[in-house]
Design a protein around this nucleic acid. Structure first.
Length: 679
RNA sequence: GCGCCCGUAGCUCAGCUGGAUAGAGCGACUGACUACGAAUCAGUAGGCCGGAGGUUCGAAUCCUUCCGGGCGCACCA
């Protein structure tokens, strides 16, 4: 509702300014004032115009107000302060619009059930968007840093879908990189296992219900240490082993590669299971092995040479390599650029950025004659997740060829990401380069206290730091499944205390929903740029600005309707049958301001969604959900609904609760948080 | 050395394209459960928005500079 009114007012102001002063302003600022006493919308435009018009801002504001006249939905305009123009809404009309009975055409995704449901039909006029997130090396268990990535990515997918975009979710699998090679070195050389023995180990773990990703977590850390534990000569030999193994993986078709395939696939499956606990699903898992074996690079290489993005270096330290300019590099024509980025090494192998360029050309549908094979890999309740293959199944969906892409990757990778964008731009794909978003975020680190509690050795220097970076290589961090288990244990304890009349299965379900709500909200409440210093005390908190707080507000409303013997939908219809004057009456006076504020907050959803997508910042919606919950809880304490004697007022209060419920449930669903039946 | 990010209440963080009196949670202290269940609410204390200049009607927000912290700058992925 807010978004529409804001646009209407801006358009009307634009027309007035053009007619009255012959001034055309593209973006007229229309903001939400800090307090309700200044109205519901305001513009400082007169302050801005004061200079060009060489007149006092208050006078200009007065003239504009007179020229504005009447606008549907608005009760009036007034000049305030130094020259603000404040707009007051027609409250009865506002309530009717926000209640949305008969559904407002411009807010077509109002219906909770549509969003996130398979029957939801995306807006065909909108883009086909590709979001890549998670992308954990398949050689160890997922940790809290990966959780931030996956939760941010998954939430952003939900937001894009809510706005009408068609979105494919990809999880890139680097199954032929050094990290997988390292754990293979661990299995083959540290543990001396053959392919058959590795297979036997997987079966054994499966039977015992143990997690292979946990096994690899320890083995990977041990192998990383092993490279540095021996004498200088031994270490040199071990490093050779490492690169020989890496080479074997890239080549494929050998026993080492088979061990890698076995391990990485098993670990990948575990990652998908872990993420499914958080309600995170994927559509496609492109693997590096296919990018290599299906020779995506050959096509990309030709294009890069033809467009002059890559050139062969004949001098300096990069002699014999194919290199490209870094973004922003200022080098005179013909001068040696020693800082150039190597894409093809002098031995003919391709660097990571090179492979990434080829992959991104594919993402945008710019790699003619090359595509993955597709195989079914993992089945979700309502769809399949596909994985890349050299020879896929006959029938398969098509991925790639997107109009816009988002890569959820931590901020440490902004340089290589910038290189890929630079390459696209250099090849003349400027539109694609503009629609390539590195959705970057800061890492999750541990507070020193948390690290000590977990039993890690923490050096005195590290103790003094505000936070310590987690490291898979060192085996230092909090595993995702451990954290989820711990959260469920904590919520179960609370649910046991409170829900004594419910059976075990119901209590389990509720505890799970609250645990996931707490975890997802915790990862979303911080803006992307801030480092999360992880601490169990904060993450296990269910009070204050948390997921459970928001869920609790919605559950309270559920209880009101259960006890009141009516439904949200029925009450909203009843309310629209009240006379507008009567509704307006309930919104008058000091006492009613908080009720009106709650309605206004409810009307802000599409505006906040818009901002969150534009800024790629899911935290905006997390904050919005919290504010909704907070305002409802405040309302709940001030107004006792079910004992209200005036039937019309009771209907109105119930409608207020109904709208708050609808908004909370919808926004929480966008955040991937379910609303439990009871708490 | 170069590049990016951060510095706001005791702690953890919001503050949208510059706008009206800088906000929240936690922690501390006071209060509120025979109400729609207190995983809640009300209240109190707590701030030279890292420092200094500038831009303008107006700066936590933009520019410059300094200080403090983090992360990147491979023929590693």
């Amino acid at each position: 509702m807010y978004l529409e009114l804001q646009k209407q007012l801006a358009a009307h102001l634009r027309a007035v300014l053009k007619a009255k002063y012959s001034i055309e302003i593209e973006n007229i600022p229309v903001e939400i004032p800090p307090e309700l006493k200044f109205g519901e919308l305001a513009t400082p435009i007169a302050l801005q115009l004061a200079r060009t018009l060489r007149r006092a801002p208050k006078i200009i504001a007065q003239e504009i107000v007179e020229a504005l006249g009447a606008l549907p939905g608005f009760a009036g305009f007034e000049v305030a302060g130094a020259g603000y123009i404040n707009a007051r809404l027609d409250r009865a009309a506002g309530v009717r619009a926000i209640a949305g009975v008969g559904s407002h055409p411009s807010d077509k995704n109002n219906d909770v059930a549509r969003v996130g449901h398979p029957a939801f039909v995306p807006d065909s006029a909108k883009d086909h968007v590709l979001v890549e997130h998670t992308s954990i090396n398949p050689n160890k268990a997922a940790h809290i840093g990966h959780l931030r990535n996956a939760i941010l990515g998954d939430t952003f997918v939900r937001l894009l879908r809510a706005s009408g975009s068609q979105v494919d979710v990809q999880n890139y699998i680097d199954n032929t990189g050094v990290q997988v090679a390292d754990v293979v070195v661990g299995f083959v050389h540290l543990e001396g296992k053959s392919l058959a023995e590795v297979r036997a180990l997987l079966d054994k773990l499966k039977q015992k219900g143990e997690r292979i990703d946990y096994y690899c977590w320890d083995l990977y850390a041990r192998t990383s240490q092993w490279y540095e534990q021996g004498s200088a000569e031994e270490n040199a030999e071990r490093k050779k082993l490492r690169y020989a193994t890496l080479h074997a993986l890239e080549e494929g078709d050998n026993e080492t590669a088979e061990v890698a395939e076995l391990i990485s696939t098993a670990v990948l499956r575990r990652h998908l299971e872990t993420m499914l606990r958080l309600d995170i699903e994927y559509d496609f898992l492109p693997r590096e092995s296919e990018i290599l074996h299906l020779k995506f690079w050959d096509v990309a290489f030709e294009q890069l040479k033809q467009t002059g993005v890559l050139y062969f270096e004949t001098e300096g330290k990069n002699k014999g390599c194919w290199v490209m300019r870094r973004p922003g590099a200022e080098i005179a024509e013909g001068e040696l650029d020693e800082d150039a980025k190597v894409i093809v090494r002098s031995n003919g192998t391709i660097t990571y950025v090179g492979k990434d360029i080829a992959y991104h050309l594919w993402k945008f549908g710019l790699l003619p004659g090359r595509d993955f094979g597709y195989k079914k890999f993992f089945t979700y309740p309502d769809h399949e997740c596909w994985i890349s293959a050299e020879q896929g199944e006959e029938e398969h969906p098509h991925f790639g060829g997107a109009q816009a892409i988002y890569n959820v990757i931590d901020s440490r990778q902004s340089d290589p990401q910038a290189n890929v964008i630079q390459a696209l731009r250099g090849m003349g794909h400027t539109e694609q380069a503009d629609r390539y978003t590195h959705f970057s975020y800061e890492m999750v680190a541990l507070t020193p206290r948390c690290a000590v509690d977990l039993g890690y050795d923490v050096s005195p220097e590290d103790q003094a730091r505000p936070y310590i970076e987690v490291s898979g290589r060192k085996g230092f961090g909090v595993k995702a499944d451990d954290l989820i288990d711990k959260l469920i244990a904590a919520t179960s304890e609370e649910v046991e205390k409170r829900q004594t009349s419910r059976d075990e299965a119901e209590r389990q379900k509720i505890a799970g929903q609250i645990a996931i709500g707490a975890l997802r909200y915790f990862m979303l409440k911080f803006t992307r740029n801030s480092v999360i210093a992880f601490d169990f005390r904060d993450a296990l908190s269910f009070e204050g600005e948390t997921g459970p707080y928001c869920q609790y507000a919605a559950v309270r409303i559920r209880n009101i309707f259960r006890k009141g013997g009516t439904t949200e939908a029925a009450v909203l219809v009843e309310m629209t049958e009240l006379a507008p004057a009567q509704v307006a009456g309930f919104l008058e006076g000091e006492e009613a301001e908080d009720i009106w504020a709650l309605w206004l907050r409810a009307g802000r959803r599409s505006l906040v969604l818009d901002q969150a997508i534009t800024a790629s910042e899911p935290a905006y919606l997390a904050k919005h959900a919290f504010q909704l919950a907070q305002e409802f809880n405040n309302f709940y304490h001030k107004h006792h609904i079910l004992t209200e004697e005036n039937p019309a007022k009771k209907t109105f209060l119930l409608a207020t609760a109904a709208v708050a419920f609808r908004e909370l449930v919808t926004v929480l669903a966008w955040l991937g948080i379910e609303t439990p039946e009871a708490m």
